[in-house]
Amino acid sequence: MLHALSLGGALYALWLLLSGYLETWLLVLGLSSVALTIVIANRMDVIDHEGHPIHLSWRAALFWPWLGWEIAKANIDVARVILSPSMPIDPQVLKIKGSQKTELGHVIYANSITLTPGTVTIALESGHMEVHALTTQAANDLLSGEMDRRVDTLEKNSDGTVEGVK
């Protein structure tokens, strides 16, 4: 129930952002739309802690900029590789294991890996992932495990709040 409420809140915020009109008529429509969405989402059974907008939690505020910076660095690396005439790539597949506890955590980790150019998660099965890395350097960055740790921290936080409301 609380999941539904918080989702509803988030959705209503989204509605206001999208709409930008503050007339009563549209606000009411917005409310009913949100209600309808929740009903449908409920029918589809997509409301649970996985479908919960955890990325809004405060610790994520620390994670995102870090990830953004990583992405930027990686981008520049890959761009340099692509643009250099000899194209010094060294594609390889790594098998790593995420230390997160929930599937959600794994997914965040996997997606963060993919978001960072130079590394792409090509398979994820209960925490074991196969990652395709374009260059050795990208592979090493990943193996250093910093991202793993950070996602871990993020997960703990979000998981904590979720456990709290349950």
């Binding site: 981008n75 890959v78 761009a79 692509i82 790539i89 594609p91 993919t114 978001l115 960072t116 150019p117 130079g118 590394t119 792409v120 395709h132 374009l134």
Partner: peptide, 8 residues
Amino acid sequence: SRMHGSGI
């Protein structure tokens, strides 16, 4: 490898 390109 092309996936990395599209990743950029």
